[in-house]
């Protein structure tokens, strides 16, 4: 179990540390230690040293991870809800409605959506809420396609027709027969959406368009690290490495889940 789901274990450890560490560390993520600017690792009370403003790296990593994962989960949920609603409607109603709804999705797929999100961020200011609504709205497309495909193939299956002949009303057919049968696949794609969202959020934050100071996220930490990398490479390598580990683990678990259900 532990070796098979090694990636999942790593994720759980990272989440656990990100949640618990701030409770035990003597420094908070935005507290400046004037006596220890650019402190090296393992110096005094700063296990991973401090950045160029004298803020504790470990505290900032923990807080950044928290924010990044929180935004990711919220946005993935938005994408799940929008995707299921859109995809299930298109698939269930079918015909021209389906055609039009899916053309719309195809159209959006072809757009440089990231730029629209960037514009949104610029226009409406930079709040966390907007960040994940924005991201969720981009990432629902794949979910909608997957759900629609599933519903389309289920809809013609004889057991759905048998349920209709048994007098089951359409809404109950959707709730009792269709949704339970797409839950697994939807869950797998939810898992795969999370790393996507982490990527997008970090990207926006890296450009200075995502999460704003004093809050921090892994993207912001990477950006700060990149700006200061000639002086303090750890500042780049730590958040960058952590981000990659999170992305890889989430992707592996998500793909395993997807292969299991399809």
């Amino acid at each position: 179990m532990v070796t098979r789901h090694f990636p999942l274990v790593i994720i759980l450890v990272i989440v656990g540390l990100a949640l618990l560490l701030p409770l035990f560390l003597p420094w908070t993520y935005d507290q400046i230690d004037w006596n220890a600017v650019r402190a090296p690792a393992f110096s005094s009370s700063h296990i991973l040293g401090t950045d160029e403003l004298g803020r504790d790296r470990l505290a900032r990593l923990a807080s950044g991870t928290q924010i990044t994962l929180m935004v990711a989960m919220a946005a993935a949920l938005v994408s799940l809800l929008v995707g299921i609603a859109w995809g299930a409607t298109a698939g269930w109603v079918g015909g021209r409605v389906d055609e039009a709804m899916m053309r719309f999705v195809d159209g959006l797929y072809a757009l440089p959506f990231m730029f629209i999100v960037i514009l949104l961020m610029v226009v409406f200011g930079r709040s966390i809420l907007l960040v994940f609504i924005g991201i969720g709205l981009v990432e629902w497309l794949t979910m909608a396609r997957v759900v629609r495909g599933q519903v389309m193939s289920l809809k013609e299956r004889p057991f759905i027709l048998a349920a209709e002949a048994a007098g089951t009303p359409p809404l109950m057919i959707v709730i009792r027969h269709i949704l339970p049968n797409i839950a697994g696949v939807a869950l797998a794609y939810l898992m795969l959406t999370v790393p996507q969202v982490v990527m997008v959020e970090s990207f926006l934050s890296f450009l200075g368009l995502g999460v704003q100071e004093p809050l921090t996220s892994l993207g912001i930490l990477v950006k700060e690290g990149a700006d200061d990398m000639d002086m303090a490479p750890l500042g780049l390598l730590l958040p960058g490495g952590l981000l990659v580990v999170i992305l890889v683990c989430l992707t592996i678990e998500g793909e395993r889940l997807r292969d299991h259900f399809s």
Partner: peptide, 22 residues
């Protein structure tokens, strides 16, 4: 391949610059 897909350009870019450039 899985690791490669999870490499965001904003991490690999600066990291490459650090290793091969600096």
């Amino acid at each position: 391949a899985t690791v490669a897909t999870a490499l965001p350009t904003f991490v690999t870019g600066p990291a490459l610059a650090l290793f091969f450039g600096l």
